[in-house]
Each structure stands twice: as C-alpha cells, then as structure tokens.
Design a protein around this nucleic acid. Structure first.
Length: 219
DNA sequence: AAAACGGGGGC
DNA sequence: GCCCCAGTTTT
C-alpha cells in the first residue's frame, strides 16, 4: 500500500529503477522544450500515441510551423501529412489548427496559463491542460493519463473510477516540491513496467508497497 | 491476424 | 454513457 508516509521512499526506488528503462513522457520534444506552444501541440499529437512516434511527428510539424501565426497558414493536409504516423491525424490536425486560431483571436497568440482557459481550447482535455501547465509554465498540474490512473489504483494509492477522480485525489497529495518528477515517474513506471495486462512484477521493487501486483492485475 | 495502445469530442 | 478516430507495436 502506497501512503503519504512512504511515498518519498517509493519515489527514490522508482528513480533508481527507471534509469534502466526508456526515457519518459510525452515525447522528447514536450519534455525538453519549455515553449508552451510546442508543449501544447506535441501533447495534442501524443494522444494515444507512443513517445518516439510523437517526437518524430512533432519535429516534422515544427519545421513547417512552430507558432500559432505560422500554424494557421498551413493547410489541413500539410499538418496531416506531418503528423501522419501518430494516428488520428485528421482530428488532431483540425484541433491543432483550430486551437492555433483561438490562441490568436482570444489570447494574442500566446498559450494561456490557467487550467480553465486551456480546457476551453479545441482538442485539449484535462491530461493535456495539466501537462501544459506543468511543462510549459512550471505550474502545479496533475497529469493523469491512463497509466497513472491504472497503476495508482492498482497500488491502492487511490480508489477511483474515472481519471478525473484520480486527478482530484492526487491533487494536493503530490508534494509541491517534487510533483513534476513524481508525476513523470508515475507515467514512466506505468509505461515501462507496470503494464496493463502483464505487469513485470518480478522486476518491480515496489512489491512490498503494492496490494495488487503479482496477485491480480486490475485495471 | 488480432488486440492493445500515453484522450478527447460529439452525441 | 457510448462510439468514433488510425497507425504502430505486441501477442
């Protein structure tokens, strides 16, 4: 059982363990840039998509346009072609363009830095909005993707039905100091080790803190 | 050849 | 709540 008392210990273990696995969340682009617009767009591209593919797609698109003003000049087709391998390319292209337009019309071409404003953009849900706050503005955001939702429930850290509830429970529980690292590690751990169907419990050093691993893989 | 996969929108 | 979007990776 993961509780507030041992969460620091858990995080330390995670850090050591993670090093052996792949690099983390939402594509290299989103993690290595602080430009809110790039973070926003690459996160939109990343929906239901692997990291390396997201990164490639983002790079290809940012060569063509890396600001709202440039983005709206592209045809839908051009955007679709750039992000094609990421899947869902039509809806994503449309959302990226529409959101770019909204940024120009309502926010002087800049990405807003509050949760409510971000949620008003096209193709931006809670996961995307919180990640933009975190990576783009260094503001306290709780990014709950399916991994975080699944493993925090599996561990017994939270008991929630919907990702939105998980976010609400985690908000305030993640220490203000290291929330970014912890959130990142949660995503990475869920992605690389604590898989949906067959978690690699034999390699998991959180076994002692987990109520479900190795017993019953529950989504 | 299936099934699973780092959400969000429309209804 | 249910269904759709789509290519890539894994089984």
């Amino acid at each position: 059982m993961v509780t507030n008392e041992n969460i620091d210990k858990v995080i330390k273990i995670l850090k050591n363990e993670i090093i052996k696995y792949k690099e983390p969340i939402v594509g290299v682009i989103a993690r290595t840039t602080k430009d809110p617009f790039r973070v926003l767009v690459s996160t939109m591209i990343s929906l239901r998509t692997k990291d390396d593919i997201t990164t490639e797609a983002s790079k290809r698109l940012f060569i063509l346009a890396d600001s709202p003003a440039e983005m709206i000049k592209l045809t839908d087709r051009a955007i679709e072609k750039a992000i094609y391998p990421a899947g869902f390319y039509r809806v994503k292209a449309k959302a990226i363009k529409k959101t770019s337009k909204m940024l120009l019309e309502s926010y002087a071409g800049k990405v807003p830095n509050t949760l409510d404003e971000l949620l008003g953009l096209s193709g931006v849900g809670r996961k995307t909005a919180n990640l933009v706050l975190t990576l783009g503005f260094n503001k306290y955001g709780i990014c709950v993707d399916t991994h975080v939702h699944r493993i925090t429930n599996r561990w017994g850290y939270v008991e929630t039905k919907h990702p939105e509830e998980t976010e609400s429970v985690l908000r305030g529980k993640l220490p203000k100091k290291h929330w970014k690292t912890i959130n990142d590690l949660l995503v990475t751990y869920g992605q690389n080790l604590c898989h949906p169907v067959s978690p690699v419990c034999s390699k998991c050093r959180l076994y002692a803190y987990c109520g479900k691993c190795g017993v019953r893989a529950r989504r």
